[in-house]
Amino acid sequence: MQLPFIYEINIESTEMTLPQNNSLAIEATNLNIYYGTFRAVKDVSLKIPQNKVTALIGPSGCGKSTLIRSFNRMNELVPGSHLKGEILFRGENIYAQTVDPVEVRRKIGMVFQKPNPFPKSIYENVAWGAKLNGFKSELGYPNMDEWVEQCLRKAALWDEVKDKLDQSGLSLSGGQQQRLCIARTIAIQPEIILMDEPASALDPIATLKIEELMRELVEEYTIIVVTHNMHQAARVSDYTAFLTMDEDRSGVLVEYGQTNQIFTNPRDSRTEGYITGRYG
């Protein structure tokens, strides 16, 4: 008459859903990054999906900034840094001998922690990079003015600056400066946009504007963001990677998965400790 209890799993599968190979934007394999003899990043393998926001979180000094800077070879500007392993972008190792870092940086743009517009006009800030990389109006876009407008629109800044394009980029507020930097990055038509703590110097409203902008941009670009604000990572990202330091103070990847899983039900106790604020 009565059946025994059964239990059924009632929510969407909690199996870790990692990006599939066919939709990868960039992939790091066994990456080791050194500063002199110090290993800042140890054996990190990470598959970053296309048209998604991937957040790198972790405590200070866990190598997340070093890792994101290695994706467009900015890290090698630091004296004494070198790297072992591969980063595959469109099936090619960007650290191969034949690859020019300038070409890598054109395809993989970067937005920095502190808003750093050039000390030039707003217009020049956007146009300079495009001009540099051989922007040709015949190749598609009518002319530079329209391209600048388009980029500023995409960065949700056009309405605020359209009447003062010739004013200095430094005359804008912090949040506007950061969006100008995003417009400048979009202007070189990258495929991936790296953001290294893009909102850490901004007030809460400006921060939310940047986050909202990231959700819009991800329709067209792949975004990788480093943040020490895990609520920001939770709000803005699709995937989250948690890094921490091992006993040698090298950065290691602890857990990588969908953001909703990482923040409600992390697999690793170190992740749990970090996201609930009981780190260390």
């Binding site: 008459m1 009565q2 059946l3 209890f5 059964i6 239990y7 059924e8 799993i9 009632n10 929510i11 909690t14 409600t264 039900n265």
Partner: peptide, 13 residues
């Protein structure tokens, strides 16, 4: 404790 969302269902006959 586990993050699992279960239902201990009781099936009526």
């Amino acid at each position: 404790n586990t993050g699992e969302m279960l239902e201990f269902d009781q099936m009526e006959d």
